[in-house]
Every structure is written in structure tokens, then in C-alpha cells.
Write a protein that binds this DNA or RNA. Structure first.
Lengths: 365, 365
DNA sequence: TTGAAAGCGCTAACAG
DNA sequence: CTGTTAGCGCTTTCAA
């Protein structure tokens, strides 16, 4: 509509200043909403800006202020609703405080995470929320802290770092759910996870993921309480794609002393496990019991509905963003530190095993 | 480790230049990998940079070059795996080409989308991928095009705009799946969607979403083919939260001439619908048939597995990013334009209705 | 190849 | 309140 027909060059404060017949500084003040500006000048500047459809260059703004109003989020896999929900919690909170979110996916690849941190730092984000792929290799996270840039961890702890972390206590909930399984007569409990490791699992091995390590700890504690030996041979890591997950499921179910219950480490992996169980013609929970982490809505729709460990993922995302923004604003961490507890939701997929003390070597009916 | 103990100020090219004993310009050239630099200078600069652990300020870089290596993505709801997957396709492609992604959630709110576009433009992203909340109100998208910034639409068309759009032909697939339902003896087919409208649905009404409009068109065509009257009373929009979805489901199932089949507009809404059906004590497909859009993995795990319309969401995300990057690079759109077709995956949730010509007024068994 | 100097668009410091 | 003058950290002329 306006008479301006020229192409290319963007409108700057200088243009607006000229049109409003004030100095660049005054125009900038009116536009940027800072400093002292008379009503007269302000209205003339705003009118000129409107007329020219001026838009501030946030990059230039950020350069001077040192604030980009952007927070970086690094997760393992957006496709996983677990992170999808957490991300929603983060973006909701961020938006409310005027922050934008730059999202980077790492595929749980440490190298990708290290690069992501670097990129985000280079882009001068105001803070970082990371769901660390490794709880052991934390140099890059340490560097974030050293640089003075705010950092909050999500979902997983990082060994030896003093950093706000929004995560549930996995040891507790894992102990509780293992107890549940044990009480139901299961001793051969398989744990399947996509966690990548150099070598197959053996008892006492150091794991990259605090999540998984804690869950295994919890399981072992539950076994110890009953003075039972923890079946380390049923801990299966490196369950990569759908096919490998199915293969592993078949393995633990068809071995000489097979698993009578399976715990799925996350909701994505759970899908393939359940499918594999169905393919074997086994019934849940009559033939195999099943328990999974994350309470996705669909777990209520299967027959039987699945017993799950519900985690307050959205709230963790929310809290992570809140904590980060507090840090950015130079505020101390809110006290008491927010606590997140997972809960065991008992639905129909864990069945009672009559012959609890079944001797080794029997097969699934 | 290094001797540098001072705080605060970040290392800049100037610092590196001084340390390497070259001019700022030469240091910048070596660091930025442009212009002409002798091997000697380059190595000295790189060494100095390493020593000082210099990191470029991408903000400053972007200011000069006018390129931020960032693309903006605007979607309705990340929490919905539909967009989760699409986003994955986008980020995967973006990363491969050295782009980062700024993600904004709109909650399918037009106002939020308009603001998001503005914010992203102000941040000087190199391009935008938008899943437009409205196919009618497209001023803000038009403005993106006017500004000369590359734009690609995802999932939904925008009325009257000439812009690359990665979406499936909803009319076709909807016609096909409605035929399937009709052939199975269903005439009372309900369509439930979260699409917000001012007034309840009436035939011929203009809808904000091309997706939904196209689906209804397809349904109507299928009815016309058989010279049947399309049951507009069973089109239910504005299905907001879980409770309202359940209420609507009960309504169409308990009304005098009830629906014998339900089509769920997306995977999120489907969960509540199926739950509501189960709560009513009705069986799928014996009492009600069910069909949903999006082929999520869990739809294979329900009893019976659900009949769905599968959409190549990941690939659409991939293609959207690819197309956008081509535009950014000043290349013409790739020809032929990528086509995406949805497919009807017939599983067990659509059953045959014996008495196809049931007179109105009968109730569900 | 090199270096000095002039910006990018904006905010900040400092006189009036 | 207002305008002038410096920068922010980098890229880009333009001569040398």
C-alpha cells in the first residue's frame, strides 16, 4: 500500500530517525523503549516506524546488550514423546518470559552434544538446558559453567558437577517397581534399554547414563532385600533399532531360563518389545509380565493396559526453564529445590507368577 | 590450565591478532576462513586462537554477512508426535547443511503464529518453515514473502499463496477411506477434530484449515458417488481437551441415530475417543468402527489394531527443509515438486455393518 | 598477501 | 530530555 517501492535494504533506526526528524539516538530510545523520550518525539518516531514498517534487527540489539533472549535446548531425541513433552514445558515457560528456544537433537551421540553446546555458545544463547547423553563425559558441560553461561540439566545427572538438575530419583522408583515384580513372583526380570555401551552389560560396570545406572541400582537393591541374586544376564543394553529390540526380546524370552517379566527403558522401545511378545504368540500378562517407563496415553488403550512408571516430564521441562531463567536474571536457585517423583501406575500388564521358586530350566507355558 | 586467570571479557579476534602478531583483518580472515592468508599467518593465528580458546561470536558474524545459519520452524504443537516427527525430519536435514533450528509452538493460535513469524524475522533467520494454523488468514505469511525471506509451508496449504508446500492430498485419501467405510456398510460416519471455529459445523462452511476442509470434501465426494446424503450433523469440530473429546464421542454414539463409525482427525484426539468408546462399554469394531489419521506405532498394539491413514510426516519435514535450503542458496525449486501421498492402512478397527440400510432411529446393540 | 579503516544496526556514555 | 560520539566483534572495502 505505501509508496515505498524500493527493494533490498532493510529499514534501520537511521531511516526512522530521519523520517521523524530526530536524532538516531532518540529514535532508538523510542523504538527500544529505554532512556528518556518526550511524548512528542516518541509518537513521531513510532508513527514514522509504522509508516516505514520498521522492524528492529534483533541481532544488532543482542550484540550490544549481550542478551539474545534465546535459550538453547539439547535433547537426545525429539521424536520421543518423553522429550516432546519436556520440550513443550520448556517452550511454554520460555515464551511466557519472552525467550525463544533453539533446539538441537543429538541422537544421544556425545560428539553431537559437544558440538551442539559449542554452536549454541557461539550463538550467544542466554542459557542452556541439556539432557546430557553421558553422565560421565562432562567436560563440555563444565566448560559451559566456566564460561559463566547459565546451565540446567534435564532428566539426567552429570557426575560430579554442581549444577541444577531436574530429574526424578530413579533408584527409588526402580526399587519400588522391582519389588512389585518380585512380589508378583517374578525373579527372572529382563531390563532392555537402548543405551549404547562398548561391551555387553556385566555387574558393576560403569554406565554412561545415570538414569540407567540408577535404575539398575534400584533393581539390585530390591533383589538384595529378598536376598536374591540379581540376574545380570537379563540386562540388555544397546537395543538399537526396532529389529534389534525384537531380537533381544525374543532372546530373553526363549532362552533356557527365560525372563518372566520385561522392563522397557522407555516408551519408544516398549513398542517394539510388545510387538515382539505378540509375535511370539505370548500373552501379557499370562505368559510374560511387562512394565515400562513413561506413562504415554496409549498405554491405557492396549489389552491389557500397561503398568508404567509415570514421570512428570512436562513439569520437569517447566521447572528446568524456570530455573534457567532465574539464573539468567541473576537470581539464586529457588528453594527448596523442586523435587520430582515418579510413580508406579499399576494397570494390567504385570501378572502373578504362581510358582515363584521355579527351578531354573523350565520353559514358558 | 592456561595462565589466563582473568574473568569476564570474552576473547575476540583482536586478542588473537595481538597474540599472533598480525593485523586484526588477517586474524579474522584466518579464523573466518575467507580471503587470502599465507600459511605462516594462518598457522600462527590458529595456534594463538587455540591457546586463548577463542570462539567466534556468531552474532557479530551474522550481522555482517546477513546470514544467521538458522531457520525458524513454527508448528502448532510439538507435543503431537505428528509434528515431533516432522521436526525431526527438519532438524536432521538442517544439521546436515549446517543450519540450526529455532522452534516455536503456536498452540494452533493464529495470534501466536503471527507473533512467531515476526520474532523470527526480527532475529534474521535465513528462512521459515511454517505449518500454518490458518489457510485463510495469511497476511503474515505474505509479508514473509514480501520481505524476500525464503518460506516453505508444511502440512497445510495457504489459500492463494504461491509458496512451496509440503503436504499430502487430503481430498484423495479422505475420499478413499470414506469409501472404505461406506463399503463396509457405514453411513453414519462421525468426523471429530480439534479445529477451532466460531460456530458449529454446517455444510458449505468455510474452514480455517485446508486439511480439515479437504478431508470433509473427500468425505462428501465419497457420499455423492453413492448418492447418499453426507451426515453433516456428525461433523464435530472444536473438540478441545480430553474431556470435551469424550463428551463429543458420547454424544455421537448415544444420539437417536448414532454414528456407527468415527474418524479421528489426529493421533492425539484419537486417544480420548478410543477411551470414551471403551468407557461406554462398546467394542471396536463390533459396535463402532474407528479410523484415525496418522500411523503411530502404538496403533498396532491395541486390540484390535487400528485402521489408520499413514502420512509420510518425517519425509515431509525432510523435504520442507531441503526446499527451504535450496531457496536460501538461491536455487530454483527442485523439479518435479515432491509429492506426498497418504495411504490407508487397513487393520482391524473397521468392521462390516450388516444392515447397511438401517432406518433411522435404531440404537446401537 | 597484508593492514588500515570503514562499516553492519544498534545501544551506551557523556555532555549539553 | 536531546544529540553527539563511541563502541559491540566481526567482515569488507581499499590501498599498499
Amino acid at each position: 500500500m505505501s509508496s515505498n517501492g524500493s527493494r533490498r535494504r532493510e529499514i534501520t533506526v537511521a531511516d526512522v530517525a530521519k523520517a521523524a526528524q530526530v536524532s538516531k539516538a532518540q529514535a532508538a530510545r523510542a523504538l527500544g523503549n529505554y532512556g528518556a523520550v518526550s511524548d512528542d518525539v516518541r509518537s513521531r518516531v513510532l508513527a514514522a516506524a509504522e509508516e516505514l514498517s520498521y522492524r528492529p534487527n534483533e541481532l544488532a540489539r543482542s550484540m550490544n546488550t549481550g542478551k539474545s533472549n534465546t535459550i538453547g535446548v539439547i535433547v537426545g531425541d525429539i521424536e520421543n514423546p518423553h522429550f516432546g513433552l519436556a520440550t513443550r514445558g520448556i517452550t511454554d515457560t520460555a515464551k511466557k518470559s519472552g525467550f525463544n528456544v533453539i533446539l538441537i537433537n543429538t541422537d544421544e551421540e556425545l560428539a553431537a552434544e559437544i558440538e551442539a553446546v559449542q554452536v549454541l555458545l557461539d550463538k550467544r544463547v542466554d542459557g542452556l538446558i541439556v539432557a546430557p547423553a553421558s553422565s560421565v563425559e562432562t567436560h563440555h558441560l563444565q566448560r559451559v559453567q566456566d564460561s559463566g553461561r547459565p546451565l540446567v540439566l534435564l532428566d539426567r545427572h552429570a557426575g560430579g558437577m554442581e549444577v541444577e538438575t531436574m530429574a526424578v530419583d530413579m533408584v527409588d522408583i526402580s526399587r519400588e517397581s522391582t519389588r512389585h515384580l518380585l512380589q508378583s513372583g517374578h525373579q527372572r526380570i529382563a531390563f532392555i534399554s537402548t543405551l549404547k555401551t562398548e561391551t555387553p552389560y556385566r555387574a558393576g560396570m560403569v554406565l554412561d547414563s545415570s538414569q540407567i545406572a540408577d535404575r539398575l541400582d534400584g533393581m539390585q537393591q530390591a533383589y538384595q532385600e529378598r536376598e536374591l541374586v540379581f540376574p545380570a544376564d537379563l540386562v540388555r543394553l544397546n537395543a538399537g533399532d526396532a529389529e534389534s529390540i525384537r531380537r533381544i526380546t525374543r532372546e530373553v524370552l526363549l532362552m533356557p531360563d527365560p525372563a518372566t517379566a520385561i522392563v522397557a527403558s522407555d516408551g519408544l522401545i516398549a513398542l517394539s518389545i510388545v510387538e515382539a511378545i505378540q509375535e511370539l504368540g505370548l500373552a501379557i500378562p499370562a505368559d510374560v509380565s511387562f512394565l515400562m517407563y513413561d506413562d504415554f496415553a496409549w498405554t491405557r488403550l492396549t489389552t491389557p493396559p500397561l503398568t508404567v512408571v509415570a514421570q512428570p516430564v512436562y513439569n520437569m521441562g517447566l521447572a528446568a526453564a524456570k530455573a534457567l531463567i532465574r539464573q539468567i536474571d541473576g537470581l539464586p536457585p529457588s528453594t527448596p529445590a523442586p523435587q520430582f517423583t515418579a510413580t508406579l501406575v499399576r494397570r494390567g500388564s504385570v501378572g502373578t507368577r504362581k510358582c515363584a521358586e521355579t527351578p531354573a530350566g523350565t520353559t514358558v507355558p
